[in-house]
Computed example of a mutant assay.
Amino acid sequence: MKTIIFDMDGTLLSTEAMYMQSLIQTFKDRGIEKSYEEVYKVFGLPSLDSLIKLEAPEPEKMQLEWQNHYPDFWYEVKVFPGINKMLSGLKVNDFTLGIVTSNTKEEFMENTSQFDFPKYFEDFVFAGETPKMKPAADPILKSLNDLQAVPQSSMYIGDSIHDMQAAHNAGIKFGMAAWGVRDRKVFDNQADYIFEEPQELYDFVINDK
């Protein structure tokens, strides 16, 4: 592998609780009760798509309301253990790194401002920059093109079935970031690789180089 493209939420950053709790609160503000399990089903999708899938009233307005609640639960966001060491090691060993995320650029900047992730990556693809987002191939294909990467030596790392579908639709291998996955059964054994922790991913690509 020479090119590794990462998802952000649930892969590099533990953001699940922040997004889900703020979404629950957004529904509650409108008198609608949603359980954590209900809203978790849309985790990993772009925010507007998530609301539409959940049949939210006025999804465009609720998207803004949801985003306004992020800071209320910011204390929930953490970098997964071992991520910075892994990214630093990959960078030093001349791997080409990119990010494909369902966040808008504004969401990404807010969510990552204290973690200094941009120094590791050469390309970023955000929500709204391609005709379709994950699980369609478009954002990964854009990243491959931006990075001038060869699909056969590229891999996408993510934590959701939408990530896996996007990778396979783009014709590249998918590595499951198992450290951010709650339920592996939904992948139906279709992940090309499963990495239990960031160090395992690092060791794999170093040996495969």
Rank of each mutant, 00 (worst) to 15 (best):
D123L: 12
G128R: 12
D116P: 00
L45C: 06
T104Q: 05
T3Y: 10
T11Q: 04
V92H: 05
K209C: 04
G180S: 10
W179D: 04
E16P: 07
A177M: 03
K119R: 15
D159Q: 07
A127K: 13
A136P: 00
Y202H: 14
W66A: 05
K61S: 13
Y40D: 09
T26M: 05
E122V: 02
P198D: 06
L54F: 00
G180M: 06
P139G: 11
L48C: 00
P151A: 08
H69Y: 15
I24E: 00
Q152N: 06
Q165K: 14
M86R: 13
P46A: 05
Y202C: 02
Q25C: 05
E129K: 03
L12N: 08
E200V: 12
Q199P: 01
P151C: 02
V77N: 11
E38Q: 14
D123V: 15
Q114Y: 12
F174D: 02
D183W: 00
K34Y: 01
I83C: 11
Y193T: 06
F195V: 09
N103R: 14
V77K: 15
P131I: 02
M133P: 00
S35D: 02
P59R: 00
M1P: 09
L87V: 08
V92A: 13
M164N: 05
F195A: 09
E76P: 00
A17P: 03
V77G: 03
E129M: 10
T3S: 05
S47L: 08
V39T: 04
S102F: 06
L45D: 03
I172V: 01
S47I: 05
E33M: 08
Q63D: 12
T104E: 07
L90P: 08
A17C: 00
K28N: 13
K53D: 06
I83V: 15
D188S: 11
E110W: 15
E129N: 06
F117V: 01
V205K: 11
L141N: 11
E65G: 08
D9R: 06
V100C: 14
K142C: 06
D146V: 07
M8Q: 07
N169R: 13
G128A: 09
E65C: 10
H162E: 05
F6E: 05
